[in-house]
């Protein structure tokens, strides 16, 4: 038994030595890795852009961000989340600049002092899409009426359900139609626009999508546009600099540079023609400097 005690002692001591060495080597490896990663030591060069999935999924940011980086030398970290999360990131000071589309929430955000210099960037529009067979017979109807028919027919409707700009818009539209959607027919996807369209397609359901994402995915879908061009369906994007008073770590210079870039005439011209070739129609209408 003496032996056993000795073994335990030895093992424990050897273990501790090995562990300490392990931790040290581990930390060293992590430090090296950090030093090697491109972002290190360049925090003033990093701009965190919190935005909505639609600007990324349509490919618009893949065109604009490299241009901005080349022009200014900033390194953009595009974090594509829903508008709700993007605004929350701004509120916490976790992002430097926001590109979002939920005017009512944005106004609250500004009123609470979370952001500065909110400027219009562009708009696109939403479309109500659904199966070609159109079981609720809503094709071409005014929006509120169409939503009423979907609800009374209990035709399946897929909601984003993720507090994104599109989801906020959808909730507003139901409210304006004086309907509280609930029941088995109202499906909460909790996902991005692309997945939501795909779920709707599989379920042969109705849903509301921004035109850009719908056009981008149209080829793989059997869904058709049934209601469009209703004034209520316009979707406005704004750029907001996060209030630098929130935290010393906010890169306001970078935020301002991005804001200036995206509303500059050259960028607005690129936005005007973005999607022309690929989708046969532009996806966004630039409206920097305009009153809404």
């Amino acid at each position: 038994m003496q032996h056993l005690g000795r073994i335990k002692q030895i093992v424990a001591r050897a273990g501790l030595v090995a562990l300490t060495t392990g931790v040290l080597i581990g930390l060293a490896a992590l430090a090296t890795f950090t030093a090697l990663s491109p972002a290190a030591g360049a925090s003033g060069k990093n701009v965190i852009l919190a935005t909505t999935t639609s600007t990324q999924d349509t490919g618009l940011l893949d065109v604009l961000v490299p241009l901005f980086e080349k022009k200014t030398g900033y390194l953009v970290k595009t974090i594509a989340v829903g508008t709700g999360e993007a605004l929350a990131m701004g509120e916490r000071g976790e992002a430097d600049v926001l590109l979002v589309h939920a005017p009512a929430s944005e106004e609250k955000f500004m009123a609470a002092g979370h952001g500065i210099n909110r400027k219009p960037v562009m708009h696109n529009d939403f479309v109500l899409v659904g199966p070609a067979a159109d079981p609720a017979r809503i094709m071409g109807l005014p929006l509120a009426e169409a939503l009423g028919k979907i609800a009374s027919a209990k035709a399946i409707f897929v909601s984003r359900g993720d507090d994104s700009g599109t989801h906020k818009m959808e909730k507003k539209l139901w409210k304006e139609a004086k309907i509280t959607p609930s029941g088995n027919w109202y499906v909460d996807a909790g996902q991005g626009m692309g997945e939501t369209l795909r779920i709707s397609d599989q379920k042969q359901a109705y849903t509301i999508s921004d035109r850009g994402t719908y056009l981008a995915l149209k080829n793989g879908l059997s869904l058709k546009i049934l209601v469009e061009k209703d004034r209520a369906l316009l979707n406005f994007y704004s750029v907001i600099e996060v209030n630098p008073a929130k935290s010393t770590r906010i890169n306001n210079a970078g935020a301002k540079a991005f804001s200036d870039f995206i509303i500059s005439p050259e960028t607005q011209e690129i936005i005007r023609h973005f999607g022309d070739k690929k989708y046969g129609q532009p996806l966004f209408v630039p409206d920097a400097g305009q009153q809404r």
Binding site: V11, G15, L19
Partner: peptide, 21 residues
């Protein structure tokens, strides 16, 4: 890198957990 660091941490810790009381 993550697996390497985990090994450096995990093998000593796992050994201690197995052999000591």
């Amino acid at each position: 890198t993550a697996v390497l660091i985990s090994l450096l941490l995990g093998i000593p810790l796992g050994t201690i957990l197995a052999l000591s009381e």
